[in-house]
Amino acid sequence: MAARTDTPLVEMRDVSVAFGGVKAVDHVSIDLYPGEVVGLLGHNGAGKSTLIKCLSGANKMDTGEILINGEKVEIHNPRDARRYNIETIYQTLALADNLDAASNLFLGRELITATGLMDDSRMEAETRKVMGRLNANFKKFKSPVKALSGGQRQSVAIARAVYFDARILIMDEPTAALGPEETRMVAELIEELKAQGIGIFLIEHDIHSVMDLCDRASVMKNGKLVGTVNVADVTDEDILGMIILGKTPAPAS
């Protein structure tokens, strides 16, 4: 965390989003450095999902700008986001339930043969490789993902994000639907990805996960940014205070 002088991987400056008359996100600025996990916290409706969807291309921002490696970029849709190696694991997982794991993993980025047709066997082979790394117990390669357990579906969604060399990863409550074993697996994966220099935005409700996994935490309340703190410098009580009361702890940056 010493490298605070270099350019951030992602910088979202002064972002505002309004739905009708409601300001869902109100002039919020956050940033993310390579190899860092930044937690985004706040109550339901605090605006964290709306804010992060501007980065993943699912929402449009009304004002503000996004910089990647210090350069201003335009992200209008999920395809733009993918072009900047931004990958998102949505809370809903965003899987097509009627398709199998390989079809979901490569959805929108199918491998094709020289004839222009999809190369299904190569996609399945690649899926077997990446799933073997992420979740060695995964065997249901031929079933539609609706036949899979919550944890297996989660592995497919995670595999999709990490397979395509993500540099910026957005995880929206990745462990919400998981058992303890699978939660541990996700935590290990986050550590591994961090070590590879990937920057991760983690939207999380569980304060213990935040304390364990995040380097910094940005807290939002009613669409506004309460503050950003170094997790090592504060206690979980401090962060809860920020979430509930919107109060910045005294020594925070």
Binding site: A58, P78, Y90, T92, D97, N98, L99, N104, L107
Partner: peptide, 12 residues
Amino acid sequence: GGNPDAAELSGI
């Protein structure tokens, strides 16, 4: 057909 939102978010 299986999940319009997922298709949209996958850049389709």
